[in-house]
Structures are given as C-alpha cells and as structure tokens.
Design a protein around this nucleic acid. Structure first.
Lengths: 245, 245
DNA sequence: TCCCGGATACTCGTAGCCGAGTACTCGGAG
DNA sequence: CTCCGAGTACTCGGCTACGAGTATCCGGGA
C-alpha cells in the first residue's frame, strides 16, 4: 500500500524518501496509509528493483547524509494506473479485528459482552462526533470535498458499525438473540462441558454452508462481472479460464 | 489475531496445531481470521514462549510425523479474556485498501473513476446478495444467530459502503462534487502543471487540521471513556498519566 | 559564545509472515 | 496387486515490516 503512495507522489514530481514522508504527513495521508520509516525505504528499494521508479540523482548538502532523489518510470505510471483501477473496482476481503472478536464472542459471558459492547458504543459515538467536527472545519477552510473522501468513507463505515453494535447490545440484553441459551449454558458450571461442546459443534456443523457460500462468491462474482463489463469481448485466454474451473 | 484464535480453541480443549487448522476451517473461522500453516506454527511457538500455552504430550501414530498436543495455561486464559475485552470495547484504526485508494482518487480521471466505481458497485451488490442467501440457508439449517454475528457485521459494513459508493458515483457523474474543477484541471494537458500543483497544495494545506483532529481523537476519547467507565475510581498511577500530558 | 532541542536523512537487526516443499499414510479404482 | 490422489502433520527459507538508533545541521536563548 505504501508503495502505491510512493508511486502517486513521484507521479507528481521527483522526490527523495524523507520528503515523501514529510509530504504524506503534511497532507495527512498517514491517516489512510500506514507510514513508518523502515517500510518506506524498503518499499522504495523494491520499487527500484521492479523498475517502477529510478534514482535520478544523489545530492549531498554540507555534511548531511546523502539524499537520493527518485523519479517515476513509464512502467511505474502504468502500474500506478492498473493498481488504482483494481483497488477502486474490486472489493477485497479485509480482516478486521472486530470481525474476529465477534466470531469468538461466546468466550465472554453475555454480561461481559454487553458491558464491553456498550463501552465500544461510547467510543464510536465520540469518534463520529470528532470526525463531523473535522469535516465542518474543512468546509470552513474551503477544502473541497474531493480531498476528504477517505474521511467520509471511514465515517460511513463507523456509523454503520455503531448501528450494528447498538442493535446487538439490545438483542443480548433483552435476551432476544437467537442462541442466547446455548451461550448461557457455555458459561454455567452446572452443565456438563462435554454436552455443551456437542451442542455447539452440532450447531456449527449445521451451518456449514454459510461459509462455503461466501467462499464461492468470489468466483461466481468474477464471472458475472466479466460478463457485465465486457459483454461482447470473448477473452483470448479462454483456455486458462477453463483450466481454473 | 491468529494467536487469539489458538487461545480460544485451546480454551475449549487441548489440540495439536494441525487439528486447530482443520477445526477452524470446519467452523469457517478462516473467513474472519486469516489462517496459513506457516503463521500457525510460528504463533504456537511464540505462545509457548510467552507461557500462554504449554505442550502436554507428543504422540506418534505409526510412522507419521509427531503430533504435539498443546493446552492453555492459567495465564493464557487471562490473556484471552483481556485481549477479547480490548478488541470488543475499543475500536482500533484499520487501514482499508479502498480508503487508501479514495485518498488518491485524483490520480485517475473523473471518467475512469466513475467507470471503476460502477464496477465496484456491481461487485458489492453481488456480495450482499450472496451473503443474504447464506444467512437464509443458516436460518433454514437452524444455526443460531449467535454463530453468524461476524457475517452480519461484515454485511452491515458492505451495505454502508454500497450506499457511499452509490452517492459518490452520482456526485461525480452529475458534476456536483465539490472540487471537480480542480480534478478536471489536473488531467487537462492545456493547464500549466506548476499552477495546478499550487492549487492542490494550497487546498490540501488549508484543510490541514482535518487530520490533526483525527489524531487527537484517541487521547480525548480515552479520557472521556475513562471518566465514564470508572467515574469514582482515581487511578493509582496518576503520576504516569500526568507525565503523558 | 555555547549548548540544546528539534529537524534532517537515513541504516540496521530483529521478529514475524507466508507459501512451497517434504514425507508419510490410507483407501479405492483398474 | 499396484498406483494415484487426497489427507496428515509439519519444516524451512526467503521476504517484509518496523521501530530504535545514528549522525549531522540549524536556530535561538542564556
């Protein structure tokens, strides 16, 4: 990801790595792209090896460390365009921490879950409040919306998460959540642990195909999209496709 | 993250690493937690080093490779609980690919952006459709909602993204997006590249504080939450706190 | 004048991640 | 009976990420 940012910056003008990092911070790209010194230099090296960027000159001012100035190559511009196209056009599976936590929520007690989710709810609300304040400020400063799309997007996701958490808290605390009795049973000492495991395992195996459906979604989606995007373009590498099926 | 899953599995019963991986696949946890063989064994080793799990016995059946069976320790159980508590209660910044792409959307032309976003829109709709089918199946199979919370959550986020992308496509193609003229100018050869850069830089610097607000949100949030969670609990390490301010 | 904090511009070593590879077993088709 | 493909259970080496460390310069206050 950092590599993409480097390409985008060098697409504007030649720079040395340190300048890339300061420019990114100035423009607050560090909010949407993780930036660390170590990774930056590694990434620049690997882009050079790939031929996407090239060292233009090495300057030394006084006795400071050398600054190597890089510029983007033609193949780097192509790569930037292709990469951006894929990122924008194709949603990819992102492994979110909260998703993982939800998949193991049953290791906590229902009471703990409600308490902790309520805490999350407060934090989400504060975050949203803060972002709105930031957006209002941006508008006052005359910063066009074009440059705050990332923030808007993250905010949209956060609001959706808030609504979900809200509903989940209600379902658990009002005890209307389907499966709440199994959950209770897992955490009551009175019950035989073997029996509980049986119940859980059977429940999980019954829903076996939930995940399977999700797995096959990508392949199916690709075929449908391909048909939509290029409805009259028979692919030249049809043989490769059929070998995948 | 994988370490958390290992703890959760060993909290149920002792297992050897390969069994962990098959169990995770059976239960479709691989959808919410990235699972690779390499990482699994690394993670198990580091959990052993940390004292969170311990080797119980090493069995050899026939001439197959040895199976080392691990069990969770008391400190592992504590860690599992603490870690889950933090994941559930505290939203953390996640760097999403699409967020990064949006922050650099201007490297594409508005026309390309609309085309690619429309493609994304189709894919998102198919994904949502598929997930709904999967949920319906889960309900028919009698799998309690408790075990499909992750899927629901991801779906809620995807739906929010779809709405956002939808609105964004409209704003660009109807040319009502604030900043669209700057965007046009960046991609017209007629304009002097130096002048464009000036405009962009000035616009970006004007909005300087957008990001700064987001940076400070965490500290502020922490203080407010701390006040809410333990309103009458003066921390013992007050000195450490003041040194951070 | 001298020193000190902050900026400039990288380097390096450790630690983790990952996928391909290995080496064996078992059941069933021919 | 034999071969083959699928399953079992891990190992290994290369690559990447990252934060702490290094060395220099500059401006300003005492």
């Amino acid at each position: 990801m950092l590599a993409l940012a480097v390409l985008a910056l060098l697409n504007e003008r030649p720079m040395h790595p340190y300048e890339m990092s300061t420019t990114m911070r100035e423009r607050h790209k560090e909010n949407s792209i993780k930036l660390t010194y170590g990774s930056l230099y590694t990434v620049v090296d690997s882009l050079v090896r790939g031929g996407y960027i090239a060292a233009r000159e090495t300057v030394r001012e006084g006795r400071r460390p050398e600054r190597t100035i890089y510029e983007i190559t033609a193949s780097g511009r192509t790569e930037l365009y292709d990469w951006m196209s894929e990122l924008v056009s194709t949603p990819a599976k992102e492994y979110q921490r909260f998703e993982a936590a939800l998949s193991m929520l049953a290791v906590l007690t229902p009471d703990d879950a409600v308490r902790l989710l309520t805490e999350r709810r407060s934090r989400l609300m504060l975050q949203i409040e803060h972002t709105h304040a930031g957006e209002a400020f941006a508008v006052r400063e005359g910063l066009p919306r074009l440059f705050t799309l990332e923030t808007e997007y993250v905010n949209a996701l956060t609001e959706a998460e808030l609504r979900y958490v809200d509903e989940l808290i209600r379902a658990i605390s009002e005890r209307t959540l389907d499966g709440i009795h199994i959950w209770d049973a897992i955490h009551t000492r009175e019950t035989d642990p073997e029996r509980i495991r049986d119940v859980v395992v059977r429940a999980l195996q019954a829903g076996g195909h939930t995940g399977l459906a999700a797995e096959s979604v990508l392949n199916t989606t690709e075929r449908v999209i391909a048909a939509q995007v290029s409805p009259a373009t028979p692919e030249t590498d049809g043989s490769a496709q059929s070998s995948q099926l």
